[in-house]
Amino acid sequence: MSPSDTPENTTAPGVGDSAADGPLIVFDQVVKRFGDLTVLDHLDFDVAAGERVTLIGPSGSGKTTILRLLMTLEKVTEGRIDIGGEPFSHMPKGSGLAPASESYLRQRRKSIGMVFQQFNLFPNMTVRKNVMEAPVHVLGLSKDEASARAEELLDLVGLGDKVDAHPTQLSGGQQQRVAIARALAMRPEILLLDEVTSALDPELVAGVLDVLREVAETTDITMLCVTHEMGFARDVSHRVLMFDQGRIAEAGHPDQIFGDPQEERTKTFLKSVLENGH
């Protein structure tokens, strides 16, 4: 594969530009409650453009909710999220802000892609269609262009020979690699990875992580990654955030968090993850 084939050169300009002088993603006092349960508790954090951040922490600590808020699958209860220096969870209205409408969200989430724990491929489409339908209908690419690009991306994830297969004919690892190709086909500037290897048999995990390593190395896509794969997190991320009860318990360079954690909760969590064989 020549360097020009990598998604890096095809990433559309947009929010990344305006964020050159500030953080790309800003969480400002974000609260998320489900009924009486507070999942995120006045959370503040920033992510720079091109930064790769791994979110770790016990289940229920709010990591996945952060990704779902960014993908607009959930709405904030309080506080706000800005992306590229502009409001994201809210929209300008008069002189103030109002909760974002569906059409505003549709405009703003263009630059964001997500890969899910359970792949969520569309069973009514071949692998090729899974990757090319959104580029054709949402981005307005021609069918030929989208199909060629789908083949390119499926090559990138090592499934060039499966373009016309049906998702049900693929293993979990292969399905997840298709899902990564599908997300990349939309040329996201921000890629959200939600426990993308948790549903896979152990022997299939490496193939998926290799693809993501390649994406991390060859593109400048900003990545937020929720994972229990600590080796992978250490390799690819610039920063690790340890979550506990809806707050950031500790944040730092992966070498520091994994090599010399300061907080008791971080130590306990990392110990339990290691004992569980991850």
Partner: peptide, 8 residues
Amino acid sequence: EATVALNM
């Protein structure tokens, strides 16, 4: 949710 992530 997958269609939302693809901005359909």
